[in-house]
Design a protein around this nucleic acid. Structure first.
Lengths: 204, 204
DNA sequence: CGCGTTCTGATGCACTTGCATCGTATCCGG
DNA sequence: CCGGATACGATGCAAGTGCATCAGAACGCG
């Protein structure tokens, strides 16, 4: 009957404000007041959307997690011209590694949440879930590449997926830490993937 | 003339208290009072040792960084019976990846600092330095392995070192995030190293 | 021993935090 | 067009923060 508000929309807006703030100056710098200001809403609105600060942060994590997963899935599903499996694998991992400048914020937030996961059961659960999905996705891509004869048959998709995922995350960390530029990180990732291909320089 | 105190010792003690607290409940939970309590000193003592909280955290990071680097270097230098280069490489990386349960605290702290690095110039500098050193170390180990004919000659030590370091860090992250157990992470790392060796299953 | 310097730990202070409260503005059904 | 439910945003509040201050304990030297 009374005034209706698009909560889902507002929650998303707030989540993005949270991410911006986390990326700007770390997770401890996120106060309800700052979030409200950043999202251009009042503090009361924030408190109405999320019963507690924890809830707000958790939602922000899920927001990011969903964002990353969806982008990776779209990259695969929405490819109109069927691409080579190896190309698909490269592009998907490159996106998961959050290397481009626009993803820097997400990378930062993701890392912040990982850091705080051991202190929060629920955060850890979301992370675990997301990683499981990503691993499944990559393993699937590898099997697909093996089906199309692009990727070495003798490789164990699950194990290779683990390695690839770890490498991607490590590179994300290195870029954030300033040890790598996104470009060299990408090259490193690509170089590793090349080793998995059938038509590698030596051996098949 | 008057009362003399071993500051260096106290600073170390406080640094370790800081690390314990960070590992327990994140970096924002570290207050001067908590640190003082954890280190069994008064708050005044903490304030005497470190002019500001930032200084304290920075020292803690350098403390961890030094600890990790030294352990890796010792693993190499103090090896009485000259080991195979590949074994050396494995063990060194396994230690750098901070996989064993006792290193969990250090891994946690290390990640916390990486997360906060973009917000602090000095933190970033220390991280950059440490990573440069570690990369140099690993590249050196690879070259050594090539000299002893253990590691494939055609590999570029610098690039392989980058990959290895990223993989190690990625595995650290995955273990912290609960996506891997230390054991499987170690296996993944070892599997990757095996691919670099001359006597690999196929090809030399 | 006692003087003077250094170190200590308790307290003060201004500030920020997350959350609760509450009067008011806003909107929908009748 | 109005009654009532809802969302709003300002304010209050207790707790906790980093840092400054300071009286006094602890100690080496004359």
């Amino acid at each position: 009957m009374p005034r209706q508000v698009d909560y889902e929309n507002r929650r998303r807006r707030i989540a993005e404000a949270v991410c911006t703030l986390i990326a700007r100056s770390g997770m401890e710098a996120v106060s309800l007041r700052d979030v409200a200001a950043q999202a251009n809403v009042s503090m009361g609105a924030v408190q109405r959307c999320f019963r507690t600060k924890q809830d707000m942060l958790l939602f922000a994590l899920e927001h990011i997690s969903r964002h990353v997963s969806e982008r990776a899935n779209q990259r695969i599903a929405a490819t109109s011209t069927p691409q080579a499996a190896s190309t698909l694998l490269s592009h998907t991992l490159a996106e998961l590694a959050l290397l481009d400048e626009e993803s820097r914020t997400q990378a930062h937030v993701w890392l912040a949440f990982i850091t705080h996961a051991p202190a929060s059961e629920k955060l850890a659960a979301v992370l675990h879930d997301t990683y499981a999905k990503l691993h499944g996705l990559i393993a699937w891509l590898i099997r697909y590449g093996q089906d199309t004869q692009e990727i070495l048959q003798r490789l164990d998709p699950d194990r290779e997926a683990h390695t690839l995922l770890a490498l991607a995350d490590g590179l994300t960390v290195h870029v954030l830490a300033g040890h790598h530029s996104p470009a060299t990180a990408l090259a490193t990732l690509q170089r590793h993937i090349d080793h998995l291909l059938e038509n590698a320089s030596d051996r098949g």
